[in-house]
Design a protein around this nucleic acid. Sequence first.
DNA 1: TTTAGGATGAACT
DNA 2: GTTCATCCTAAAA
Length: 191
Amino acid sequence: MTADTVADLTADPTSAVRLLGAVFRHGQCAGRIVETEFYDQTDPASHTFGGPTPRNQPMFEAAGHLYVYRSYGIHWCANIVVGEPGWGSAVLVRALAPLEGIDLMWSRRPRAKKATDLCSGPGKLCAALDVDRTDTGQYLIDGGRISLELAEPPEPDAVLVGRRVGITKAVDRPWRFSFDDPNVSKPRPRR
DNA sequence: TTTAGGATGAACT
DNA sequence: GTTCATCCTAAAA
């Protein structure tokens, strides 16, 4: 939890906590990360559970890479790779508090009714920031069109913990973390 | 070559 | 609360 840069993030759930508050930027748009989930190679719910495949290859790169996958044939979901190269673990970005390029986000998500509809879910934030397959494997450090700026480590009291969402395996692992923020997606974590 | 099913969101009743 | 849209990957055949 003492990581100074994204490249220092280790392959454990503390990385998901450390990423809370970080600013995720893609092109003109940016948002503050308010909800994350941790996934690991030992985790039956993870795409890397069965080892490397052409699809999940980016998750085996060094910490600080991006892994984007298609969900239910419809949505894109963005993950920040953590841990050493060769070990498949990553943190799913589940919700953002919009910061910049908010007009652009509205134009990409015309069905949103409230500002908190723009990025309050993993598929929504990818639509709002225009993240898709072409971004998978990108390195978030060297300021391309995608980047990530770490914030100060969050106060432990400010972090809510819960079980992960939308999975059928290992649902009991308390690897979902969030702030108490209106942009957090549906079943809100407690504690 | 075929097929099953998934880390979701939106539009229904 | 329930349904459905819809695509890609991985694994089976």
